[in-house]
Design a protein around this nucleic acid. Structure first.
Lengths: 134, 134
DNA sequence: TGCTAGCATTACGTTTACGTTAAGGTTAAA
DNA sequence: TTTAACCTTAACGTAAACGTAATGCTAGCA
């Protein structure tokens, strides 16, 4: 059993447009088979798309995502200088950890604002039921 | 004592171009004082710039960052519908938690590739010292 | 006095990531 | 048979985030 997908299958599943998927193919992120002129996406394509969208959510460009794919493929083929690959992995790791830190900071800020708001709302509720100058 | 900064001070400190800072002002992220025609940045401006860059690292657009600033200001002035603010905070929180999850996944992948590479390198080292067909 | 450094504005150029027609081929139901 | 729902390529449009001139003011200094 080999599952395949049409372009609109994937578009629907991931909540993106058909145009976007075609664009990702243009940029070398996907390379679906063809049946006649129509694209036929494999499970591997689906996984790639998923990875690409994850990369996008983290602010990576399509070019960067593509480079990552290439690196992974090359690493799998053992045709790349492994040392070089390790260096690139390390770079990406540092970036991600910076992002993780950024996220923690922002989540803390949000929590702070949230609690402040709830306090204000509670106050308003209270003064709303009592006379205003209590 | 009130610290102030020139545009190139901030550019140097944050490793960005002067042009970028001016652009952020155009987009309403910063509003430095003027002395004659020259911009004079306060500590508040500096903090805003820092926040903006953090937002950028997480992939937010300048417009989104600006909206966050506006929300914060409004919240401080208590002139916003607090409920609405809470909803927006919650949205952003969900996004950030999605990103956090994405980061964890990618870091795990990186760790995996890293260990694979190191294994391969160790093997190569070993076979490099012994005859190739060992 | 003329040069250099640092600031400014205006405005056009560029890259990225698609959106949006336009124009058409294929298949299936009405 | 025509209408609808899929798919295709080609190509122009657009918003964002600056880069990159081009031009000009001003202050210090050899």
């Amino acid at each position: 059993m080999t599952t395949t997908f049409t372009i609109s299958d994937l578009a629907a599943e991931f909540g993106i447009t058909i145009r976007a998927i075609r664009h990702y193919e243009d940029k070398g992120l996907l390379c679906p088979r063809r049946e006649g002129t129509n694209r036929v996406f494999s499970n591997r394509d689906r996984v790639r798309l998923k990875l690409a969208l994850r990369g996008k959510r983290l602010g990576f460009s399509l070019a960067e995502i593509r480079e990552m794919f290439n690196l992974y493929d090359l690493a799998r083929d053992e045709q790349l200088l492994l040392q070089e690959f390790l260096v690139k992995l390390e770079r990406r790791r540092l970036l991600l950890e910076q992002q993780r830190e950024d996220i923690e900071v922002m989540l803390n800020e949000i929590a702070f604002f949230d609690s402040q708001c709830r306090k204000l709302l509670a106050d308003k509720d209270a003064t709303g039921k009592e006379p205003a100058n209590a």
